[in-house]
Design a protein around this nucleic acid. Structure first.
Lengths: 333, 333
DNA sequence: TTGTAAGCGTTATCAG
DNA sequence: CTGATAACGCTTACAA
């Protein structure tokens, strides 16, 4: 194995000089630099990243924990994280927290064992174990905030976004508005449900508990939820699904039941994934700046790693994007 | 910083014993183990992964290079890689090769600098730089094969899959069948195009060059391609798009032009992403076992890292999934 | 089963 | 600007 000392011998300099040439070329005279680089070439030297990480006690790696990489919403956030990480010289280790795919606790001891310098958690799955370890760990949460969490968070105002979406449906004239939920214990679901309830209440509308259908963000769950909703004796005239994949599932259910969107049913999604504007009808949804969320999260983490302070909560903008899946309800409905 | 030697002192054993207790607990007597574990607790010791990686000269990390994580096809493959990696004790570092997001060459020197023990390349982007370095590097390619590549590959038979899809359209009675391509220089596009040509030729059908529309796998590109295709004087009665996102874009284009699927236009996609079966009409497409591709790739890489031999080409099954977006052409067409 | 001790390859410090 | 040298914390022969 060719190491720095071999290059040093070949170039007739010290190991320190070789190291400097490689890491801080400007601290070395031009002549020396050339000689060293030539020796590097000739010797077939390959830098040993593990040795540097060991010596510096920094891995320049961050862990990103994602509930479901298959969901385009999360994968777009990961893209933002990855490009920001690249720009700051960090690597991204990816871990899925989805319990169906991931062995419980695989990543729990990850920070503990100093495999990574910091972590970004997309959603609260597994966040507890991080909080338990040592709350001074450099961890940033994205999308979702853990109540009383020690970790800075970047997200949109989920309650308000949901409220606006539902308010828009009400404004169109809808009174029976159903809601397809996410995992019921997740803060994100709770926030959005709160927004839904608030909008309904402000309009003086009663909520039938059966209108709140369970879901898990997947298209299949949206499909089943909508099927059930649309087959009620007095079905809702509008559905608000808190993820686009669920909304897409709901579109499918409506189509199978001969329910026309937006004539018979208005539908609003959440996230504005790439596919939303290609649906027929084009999907009305709440846009989140997905790449930006990832970028901001990574930038916050870098500041944390540099020992700087960051805001405990960073709230990014969202936008209700009105397209074609929403309209006025039919008369008499 | 609490290190093994501190734990050793506290437990009254040697550092070797502590190391063994942590890495190979069965090589240590029960009594000692307990004593050491207690000392670990008391001292607040945290394992130093970098030190182990350095000492062992193995990072237990693999690099996965993905053209576009935002494409559900790739992200599902990554899920397969990640879960297999977890099962084998490896970590996955994720890198995007998409030149719009990624700085050229960021990951080229990655193996060179021994940041990872091996790599999985999804698609050939950037594969050259790996081949240049040292062809003995543990690298597995997935989805796409590089002609004369030194790297083992796992993929489906793309040419045959495309041929079957087109043959099916021909069998339905279509004669004017258009094709939405991927990046023209990629082997995957070439293989599938070859399959398309072969099927057409076998049926004695001429191909109008204008039927081969450019695309890049994205829904937007499929949308534009289909728009152009459907506005020809004598438009095709069927379109074969070699990615589902492009097919979804094409559905949108058809809808805007009042072209009914499958009555006026049959449409076939490729990959069978999650959303395909939720489209209206449900999308006929070529199913690939996405998670499996990732898993197999990872398992091959593990064997490579263990010094075992692996097959140069592993061809997995695909299936033409016939749903509702395809049908007989209208009479006289 | 346990201990001793020699590294792994880099970087940081300090002196020249 | 360059050199000498001492770590960094762990693993692993080898010895006891």
């Amino acid at each position: 194995m060719v190491a720095i000392k071999d290059v040093a011998a070949l170039a007739g300099v010290s190991t320190a000089t070789v190291s400097r040439t490689l890491s801080q070329p400007d601290k070395v005279s031009e002549k020396t630099r050339e000689r060293v680089m030539k020796a590097v070439e000739k010797s077939g030297y390959r830098f040993n990243a593990a040795a540097r990480q060991f010596r510096r006690q920094r891995t320049e790696t961050i862990l990103t924990l994602v509930p479901d990489i298959g969901n385009p919403f999360f994968s777009n956030i990961v893209q933002g994280i990855e490009s920001a990480a690249q720009a700051s010289g960090y690597r991204v280790v990816l871990g899925e927290t989805n319990p169906e795919l991931s062995t419980e606790g695989t990543y729990a001891g990850y920070m503990q064992q100093r495999h990574a310098d910091g972590a970004i958690l997309l959603g609260v799955d597994g966040a507890d174990s991080f909080a338990n370890e040592d709350s001074s760990m450099p961890v940033v949460m994205a999308c979702e905030h853990l109540p009383r969490s020690p970790f800075p968070t970047v997200r949109i105002n989920n309650a308000r976004a949901a409220q606006e979406a539902v308010a828009y449906l009400i404004e169109l004239g809808h009174r029976r508005i159903a809601y397809i939920n996410g995992p019921p214990d997740s803060p994100i679901s709770k926030d959005r449900l709160r927004g839904y309830r608030k909008a309904m209440k402000q309009a003086g509308l009663k909520i039938d508990d059966n209108w709140i259908a369970p879901g898990d963000y997947s298209p299949a769950s949206g499909y089943h939820a909508a099927k059930a909703l649309l087959q009620m004796k007095k079905p809702p005239t509008a559905i608000f699904a808190i993820s686009d994949p669920m909304a897409i599932g709901a579109m499918r259910a409506a189509s199978e039941l001969g329910v026309k969107i937006p004539q018979d049913l208005s539908l609003v999604g959440f996230d504005d994934i790439r596919f939303a504007e290609f649906m027929t009808p084009r999907l009305t949804t709440v846009h989140q700046h997905r790449e930006l969320i990832g970028q901001v999260a990574m930038e916050m983490l870098v500041r944390l790693l540099d020992g700087e302070k960051v805001a405990q909560e960073t709230i990014l903008d969202h936008e209700l994007v009105i397209r074609e899946s929403t309209g006025k309800p039919r008369d008499g409905k």
